[in-house]
């Protein structure tokens, strides 16, 4: 456990999760420090998005504890009933990978949605709050557009405005940079940092963009093989001598994470007696 950040908002303790036989997280312990920007990195399938879903209570851990700290101590998210879970979720905002905007609502109505669902604010105040949130993501002028009329990067910014509409404590971003052009990546990264600092949020984001991530994160966690391979300040993680972490942060194609999927050798496949196309026992050894 990283001791450089003493005040966690979220903490995973020896947490395990899998789908059937397939283990995704195996005894993971990590913390998301309050008021900081935390980056979750790791190879594909290492369980980054799963951690966000566990924090949001969309999945339940099979073992271990997921603590969400509040003014009166902490709650184990995995043990909450629906009412308690919904109360906990009101303290969170989540940005999905592709925005997940409501296709039949305009940009304005998308951002107004959580306000209309959870408050009885007068229409004038809803308007002001929505325009303030849209202004924060630079899309006040796009309020009248429909989701089909805006780009992927804009859709994610609208989704971000919607995620912060109720001033949450924790904002989770699932791959906010994927599929964006370099300008939009820079804009999104700056927004995450600015909103975190100006609104006093705690942010956690999943990303594969090394440079942008290391430039805005206060705390980096790298997952591999269902476990935490490294966590700490970006500069410490970058200088890690762990072979797997080093391969990841320097983007080397081969290392502990192999380029080739396990299978028969080249000699076996192209020799006189080629290996069968389907492994006889279900998988190659």
């Amino acid at each position: 456990m990283d001791s450089s950040f003493p005040d966690p908002l979220v903490e995973l303790r020896d947490l395990s999760f899998g789908y059937g036989e397939r283990v995704i997280l195996d005894g993971v312990s990590l913390m998301v420090p309050r008021g900081k920007v935390t980056a979750l990195m790791g190879t594909s399938g290492s369980g980054k998005t799963t951690i966000l879903r566990l924090i949001g209570g969309q999945n339940r851990a099979q073992k271990g504890e997921l603590r969400l700290y509040g003014p009166d101590g902490f709650q184990d998210v995995g043990t909450l009933n629906q009412e308690q879970l919904y109360a906990a979720r009101r303290r969170m905002g989540m940005l999905f990978q592709f925005g997940a905007l409501f296709a039949d609502l305009s940009v304005f109505e998308n951002v107004a949605f959580p306000l209309r669902e959870h408050t009885t604010l007068p229409e004038g105040m809803v308007r002001d709050i929505v325009l303030m949130k849209l202004n924060a993501v630079g899309l006040r002028g796009a309020r009248h557009l429909m989701p089909s009329e805006i780009s992927g990067g804009m859709a994610r910014r609208v989704a971000l405005a919607r995620a912060i509409a109720l001033d949450p404590e924790l904002v989770m971003y699932d791959e906010p940079f994927s599929g964006l052009d370099p300008i939009s990546v820079g804009t999104a990264a700056r927004l995450i940092r600015q909103l975190n600092d100006s609104m006093g949020l705690t942010s956690i984001f999943v990303s594969h963009e090394l440079e942008e991530t290391f430039s805005i994160a206060d705390h980096v966690i790298i997952l591999a093989n269902g476990k935490v391979a490294a966590q700490g300040r970006p500069q410490d993680v970058r200088q890690s001598d762990d072979p797997l972490v080093s391969q990841y942060v320097h983007a080397r194609p081969d290392g502990p994470v192999q380029f080739h999927y396990p299978g028969p050798s080249v000699e076996q496949d192209f020799g006189a007696a080629p290996a069968p196309l389907v492994p006889p026992s279900g998988q190659w050894t």
Binding site: G56, Q58, L85, Y86, A87, R89, R90, M92, M94, F96, A100, F113, P114, E117, H118, A159
Partner: peptide, 9 residues
Amino acid sequence: SVMEMMAVD
């Protein structure tokens, strides 16, 4: 999913 995450059933 996003609706559930907004605590809207």
